[in-house]
């Protein structure tokens, strides 16, 4: 046991290895150690969802997982999901429907929405609201976000 732990992980497809204090949580690790500032910090007590990150394929609260726990794992952030094009249709819908205002919740909201649409191809508006219920948005009143997720789901089903 030492003052630092080594974290070796794949982040957005890149192998990274860093020595961090054990107390470093995953969102601080990606933001401050890896300079991936697209994941935001809203509360640091697991309530707001702004720090939502994908770890080993599942969305997690970045403030409630230690960076050390990502050792050997696969981390994906908004930057990676944007660059791969995986959520481009969702991002298009958010843009068209003005589903982001200040942008603080937006990356976490997009990752959560993406996770929903992976699990449920045709969510109802109520199901959308339930799934994003752990993601705070203080600007939009959520309706635009629900609209944008619904639009994406419809496009995916109607499209190719």
């Amino acid at each position: 046991m030492s003052k630092f732990v080594q974290v070796t992980t794949t982040v957005n497809g890149e192998n990274v290895s860093r020595s961090v204090e054990p107390r470093t949580n995953l969102v601080d690790f990606v933001r401050y150690d890896l300079e991936l500032t697209g994941s935001h910090v809203g509360c640091e007590h697991g309530v707001c969802g702004a720090c939502t990150i994908r770890l080993n394929g599942e969305i997690v609260r970045g403030c409630l997982v230690l960076a050390a726990q990502a050792d050997g794992g696969v981390v994906e952030t908004i930057e990676g999901l944007s660059e791969s094009g995986k959520i481009s249709d969702l991002q298009d819908s958010f843009l068209t429907r003005n589903a982001g205002q200040c942008g603080s919740c937006t990356p976490g909201m997009l990752l959560t929405a993406d996770s929903l649409l992976e699990e449920n191809k045709a969510p109802t508006r109520t199901e959308i609201r339930e799934y994003i219920s752990g993601n705070y948005c203080r600007c939009t009143g959520f309706e635009a976000i629900v609209d944008a997720i619904e639009m994406t789901s419809k496009k995916r089903r109607g499209g190719s």
């Binding site: 054990p22 107390r23 949580n25 640091e44 409630l64 997982v65």
Partner: peptide, 24 residues
């Protein structure tokens, strides 16, 4: 013990508890 951490981590983040060792 650190299991899921979904309740432990907030208490650590708020410095409501400060253990010497986390056993993951």
């Amino acid at each position: 013990v650190l299991a899921g951490g979904q309740s432990l981590m907030p208490t650590l983040n708020m410095r409501l508890s400060a253990p010497d060792l986390l056993v993951d």
